[in-house]
Design a protein around this nucleic acid. Structure first.
Length: 594
RNA sequence: GGGGCUGUAGCUCAGUUGGUUAGAGUGCCGGUCUGUCACACCGGAGGCCGCGGGUUCGAGUCCCGUCAGCCCCGCCA
């Protein structure tokens, strides 16, 4: 293939096909960089080698024309080798050129010159067939392929069976908004696209398929972000007769395999913290452990200081918490204000701080802190202390937001490049801030922590669960739990979530039926393939690891989805549209641009 | 649903205090060129300044609305 020719292929007669990446026409000689999926190769055309017709055609070649050439692999003259090209020592002297298909001038460039900017994302998405020709995207998709292949092989070796579950499913009452699909056969009834295969995989467990996985497409009709697409792919895993440790062991092995496939240094360790610990020490349930900065409780050390802010916070029932940033004294005032801005964005009124350098303390906090106080919070010469006071729900996120950025700003080496960890014991329920109702922390099928079962009634918000997250460098890459296998307990939880008997049977009867028919204890996890691929290739958006992604408005710009349907189609479904674009033609392009 | 940024040639961008003929690089078209590789050189074409309205003697520039893309909040069991 094009990208694989080397010195050793010298003298070989080859026939190659590909795209004209670039043409350099010297008049007598023509050079063309031929491109295919495997790389670039220089072709040369000249009167000594190339037949007359082909030479004439070579002069007329344009970018992205599809051609086929026959010729001989030769070594380039020594002074004309290109060390930046894998194939740069050789070229193919073309005898015969066939233009398989001409290309109009590309709407966006496939080849970018040095320092040339990418076209706008909108044009890249509108011309996805061209954008996907770029090496970067091709490499991204290839890596993604290798990751998924490694996952399949690994889970197969571990005895897991890949089983497909339906895309047309039952609408679910809770969770994200469903994508809805009308049924023609049953007017007025609807399928939903799965938000995840959660219930199906539990039923598979009940059916005795004790190790299941699926590279599963999931759909959620919610607003998008850089790390959120309306359809996304999960490595969905479930196993019977397991405890969290079994899942952790499998997934840790999986992560190693992924790192190997992705050319990433494998994890040297997997940390574990409970949810409560994570909030206390890192102010978030997905800590970034690349810097070993933590939040400390300085209430007793600083609570008796003269500072009105600090004392007021403590008297109001809050705590004083802070972060010691080793070598942080080198930060400029401006950098510290930057950090304070991050804390404010999380709702804190501000940060108090002090620097200690050359034996002297400076900063707003300095005048409230005698030397002894510095010792009490462990601030050494060269350090910076950042302090927030008040309620935990404010100070936690505020200080948490500052941890990694502070570490980055000091430019001390990261403690580790790849920080993998498990966050465990998530709360079973949250409180809906609007209504005060209980909502599931993860989903309604999570097993309560056995030690907390007796608090289910009197203090449900304090009940922990056997739910866990896989976190990598501060990003949640996976989430799972041990599930409830006892139908009575499941009913109790659904009750607590505000569902009544008849409603439970209607919506979850099939699950309860399966649980009551001899379902084994089981649990699992789902990992986000798109996010993993994004992190592994260092992309800033999921769109760079998805061949045909949606925009932030959930549109597909290339093919123009969603699109209006004809009134006939609506009629067949016995639907009426109140949208102002209803019942248009069936031309998909008409929907894309307004 | 809310906030922010962006929208000028095929592409990437500049465009002064609101001023008369809207520029650059690249791509494209034509020409010269036998060792280029961001080929070089000469010449040329190419504009609904996103769209609609307003202010003004005059709008790419100011105001309002709208559409699209991106980022964030809400939302994402």
């Amino acid at each position: 293939m094009v990208g694989s020719l080397r010195k050793g292929n010298k003298g070989e007669e080859v026939m190659l096909s590909g795209w004209v990446h670039r043409r350099r026409d010297l008049g007598g000689l023509v050079f063309v960089d031929l491109r295919d999926r495997t790389g670039l190769l220089q072709l040369s055309f000249g009167p000594e080698d190339t037949d007359e017709q082909s030479l004439a055609a070579a002069h007329r070649l344009g970018s992205e024309d599809v051609i086929q050439v026959e010729g001989e692999v030769v070594l380039r003259p020594p002074e004309a080798r290109n060390s930046e090209l894998a194939t740069g020592d050789v070229e193919v002297r073309v005898r015969r050129l066939t233009v398989l298909n001409g290309a109009r001038t590309p709407a966006i460039p496939v080849h970018l010159g040095q320092g040339e900017e990418l076209p706008s994302e909108e044009l890249r998405l509108r011309n996805r067939h061209l954008d996907l020709r770029r090496t970067k995207l091709r490499d991204n998709l290839e890596l993604r392929h290798r990751l998924v292949l490694a996952v399949r092989n690994y889970l197969d070796r571990e005895g897991f069976l890949e089983i497909e579950t339906p895309i047309l499913t039952r609408p679910t009452p809770e969770g994200a908004r469903d994508y809805i699909v009308p049924s023609r056969v049953h007017p007025g009834e609807f399928y939903a696209l799965p938000q995840s295969p959660q219930i199906y995989k539990q039923i598979l467990m009940a059916a005795g398929y004790d190790r299941y996985f699926q590279i599963a497409r999931c759909f959620r009709d919610e607003d998008l972000r850089a790390d959120r697409q309306p359809e996304f792919t999960q490595i969905d895993v479930e196993a019977s007769f397991v405890e969290p440790d079994d899942i952790f062991a499998w997934i840790e092995g999986l992560v190693e395999v992924l790192c190997e496939a992705g050319g990433l240094e494998g994890p040297d360790s997997f940390s574990r913290v409970t949810y409560a610990e994570a909030l206390e020490r890192f102010g978030t349930d997905r800590p970034d452990l690349r810097f070993d900065l933590t939040i400390e409780d300085w209430t007793s050390a600083l609570g008796d200081s003269e500072s009105r802010i600090l004392r007021g916070a403590v008297e109001g029932g809050g705590r004083i918490r802070g972060v010691r940033v080793p070598a942080g004294a080198e930060l400029s005032r401006r950098q510290i204000e930057e950090l304070e801005g991050l804390a404010k964005a999380e709702g804190a009124p501000g940060l108090l701080w002090l620097k200690r350098s050359s034996g002297e303390a400076t900063g707003p906090l300095a005048r409230f802190l005698p030397e002894s106080g510095l010792g009490r919070i462990g601030v050494e010469d060269g350090d910076l202390a950042l302090v927030a006071a008040g309620e935990d729900r404010v100070t936690g996120p505020a200080l948490g937001a500052v941890l990694a950025p502070a570490g980055r700003l000091t430019r001390r080496p990261q403690v580790r490049q790849h920080a993998w960890l498990w966050v465990t014991d998530f709360p079973l329920f949250h409180e809906d801030e609007g209504t005060g109702a209980l909502v599931p922390g993860h989903h309604p099928f999570v097993l309560p922590h056995p030690e907390d079962l007796d608090r289910l009634e009197e203090d449900p918000l304090a009940v922990r669960s056997l739910a866990y997250d896989l976190v990598y460098n501060g990003a949640e890459l996976g989430s799972g739990s041990i599930r409830i296998h006892d139908p009575e307990l499941q009913r109790t939880i659904l009750n607590a979530l505000g569902l009544q008997g008849e409603e439970i049977d209607r919506k979850f009867g099939f699950l309860l039926e399966a649980l009551g028919s001899g379902a084994p204890p089981h649990g699992g996890i789902a990992l986000g393939v798109d996010r993993i691929a994004k992190d592994f290739v260092g992309a800033s958006s999921l769109r760079d690891v998805i061949a045909f992604p949606k925009t932030t408005a959930a549109r597909a710009l290339f093919e123009g989805a969603p699109a209006p349907v004809t009134s006939g189609e609506l009629e067949a479904l016995q639907l009426e549209s109140r949208g102002h674009r209803a019942a248009g033609g069936d031309d998909p392009a008409s929907a894309g641009s307004a």
